[in-house]
């Protein structure tokens, strides 16, 4: 027992897998427990925090009778398109910035500057420029992810071992081949990981994008629920965004595992 505790408190020490996942479950249950005590125990006014069961029934009801599914579809499309455009431009630009000094010199300062400007502050401008339609919502997602994504891809590319590039020259690689046959495959795991992280951020910009001038989507649903004092609906919206984010994260991780088996000794 004593030995076990010592093991748990040693940095970097591996623990049984079962214990690891149990720990996660316990934290989750504790969270539920606190929520339950606060609500079922009548400690907090249900107008501020509804019970878990109230949230669950509202969720089911919204799925069955409400627009929840179409809201999810609309929000997912906005996040996906905004993010895809950011990735489609950000990946090649980031790779070029990470490998060609002239590209870095040209773009790093301006991107490094813009990324500190909050995407939400651009919404009034965007509405002025392109109106209240879908492109405006997607642009907010784009602005929220593009600049970080590009800079992160640049860093990933810069970290490609210089030796690998030099040995490729001695093996006869032309400049174009260097990008396609060496730099891109070497940076690919880092690129996929960057996409996973920034796609997570894209979800967090969703509500911001749907606060103004939207008439559908999860963010809209949350804003409406706030107006009509429906905290259970708000929590359903938040939980669904969380679950969707988690799911896409898991998909990226699965793609990563399946594509880069060469990074693991057992090759599995």
């Amino acid at each position: 027992m004593r030995k076990m505790i010592a093991k748990l408190l040693t940095p970097n020490k591996d623990i049984p897998k079962k214990l690891y996942s149990t720990a996660g479950l316990v934290t989750f249950l504790l969270f539920l427990l606190v929520w339950s005590v606060l609500t079922y125990g009548g400690i907090v006014n249900p107008l501020f925090l509804p019970t878990p069961t109230a949230v669950l029934t509202t969720g089911v009801d919204l799925f069955v009778n409400g627009d929840l599914l179409s809201d999810i579809g609309i929000s997912f499309t906005r996040v996906l398109v905004g993010f895809l455009v950011a990735a489609l431009i950000g990946i090649p630009l980031g790779i070029l910035m990470g490998s060609l000094k002239i590209m870095e010199g040209a773009f790093e300062p301006i991107i490094g500057f813009i990324r500190y400007m909050p995407a939400s502050a651009f919404i009034p401008l965007l509405i002025l420029w392109i109106g209240l339609g879908e492109p405006e919502k997607m642009s907010v997602i784009f602005l929220g992810t593009f600049f970080q994504l590009t800079l992160m891809i640049m860093d990933v590319t810069k970290n490609v071992q210089n030796d690998l590039i030099e040995v490729s020259y001695t093996l006869g690689a032309k400049r174009g081949q260097l990008f396609t046959k060496v730099i891109l495959p070497a940076a690919l795991p880092g690129i996929v990981d960057t996409l996973r992280i920034t796609f997570g951020w894209a979800w967090t910009y969703l509500v911001v994008a749907e606060i103004v001038g939207a008439s559908s989507g999860l963010g809209y649903m949350i804003m409406q629920a706030s107006r009509f004092l429906q905290p259970d609906k708000i929590i359903v919206g938040i939980l669904i965004i969380g679950i969707l984010g988690l799911l896409t994260d898991m998909i990226f991780k699965a793609v990563y595992r399946a594509s880069f088996s060469w990074m693991r000794k057992d090759g599995l």
Binding site: Q161, D163, E166, T170, L171, G172, Q177, A186, L188, W262
Partner: peptide, 27 residues
Amino acid sequence: RGMVFQSYTLYPWLTVKDNISFGLKLK
């Protein structure tokens, strides 16, 4: 001129066979 460095400069995403024939593939 072929070169071998002190650091291991194999392409980690290619198998041993594909590493060996990398230069030929470029050609």
